[in-house]
Design a protein around this nucleic acid. Structure first.
Lengths: 142, 142
DNA sequence: TAAATTCCTTTCATTGTGAAAGTATACAGC
DNA sequence: GCTGTATACTTTCACAATGAAAGGAATTTA
């Protein structure tokens, strides 16, 4: 790898892939005026640079019954519970995203569950680590 | 398509794809004891059901200079501003996710920008619609 | 028991992909 | 100003992945 910096074409390829990662390189190539092979080489470069981390699917959790989508801010009550809290979170598959935050609270997390009852149960467990604030998503606009 | 219900194999395929959507169907097939073609048929079924919405990439905004990752809760001050607020958000590419929420505030949004100054500028613009609370992600654990 | 249905496998044609070789352009050093 | 080197592309080619079609096993329905 030579040039470790991204140009405008790389950005356009990135945008194409974000929108539709199953697009053939040849078709992306038509949009950025390159052959499929050249696109392939750039994509490989972007992966080596760590810009592209991997391929995934966009999906709809609602369709498999995960209709409750909550944002939870956690306020830790003890300074010593961080380790156990984090391992607690890691093995809870309902918690699909976790960030350490500065500002409001200590952690921010996204939760996906099937029922209100399941959410309540999770929140009850959370109490061993601290307090929380919950917001429920009632519609995604973007 | 006949059976509109998902079975355990479908779920396992879904998980494979969430982890690595570029895995060949043949290889997924080995994990769930099916041929590649059978996996392909199931994936097509999941797309028709709307469970799978499309293919994307996982990427690292940090690597292209988007190092500020903020969670913003918006408290609207007027009941009439929702329309203009939503179109405002739609054409701001720094706002990468937006939800209407119940609980804390009216909207929750995820913001990706390069600098604190850029965040400040965005928050200033937000003031025409309402107040806000900001948290900055200082590390993603999941 | 026979017919229909579902879901799979096998086979095959088409398409996508990555490696290799060749070409054009830019740039450094003599 | 020329030559060597590097970069990034295109073309060619072999291989792998994919989807369509046909056929088979197991289950359901009458």
């Amino acid at each position: 790898m030579t040039n470790s910096t991204m140009d405008d074409i790389d950005l356009r390829i990135l945008n194409c892939l974000l929108e539709r990662a199953d697009l053939p390189h040849k078709e992306i190539g038509q949009r950025v005026h390159l052959t499929g092979q050249a696109v392939g080489a750039r994509v490989r470069k972007l992966q080596e640079l760590g810009v592209i981390e991997g391929y995934t699917i966009r999906w709809n959790p609602d369709k498999i019954g995960l209709s409750v989508h909550a944002f939870v801010t956690v306020f830790m009550t003890s300074n010593h519970a961080h380790q156990t809290f984090q391992s607690f979170v890691q093995h809870k598959e309902q918690i699909v995203e976790l960030h350490r935050v500065g500002g409001e609270g200590c952690y921010w997390m996204r939760v996906r569950v099937g029922t209100q009852a399941e959410l309540t149960a999770l929140l009850d467990e959370l109490l061993q680590y601290g307090n929380y604030k919950v917001s429920l998503s009632i519609g995604q606009m973007k």
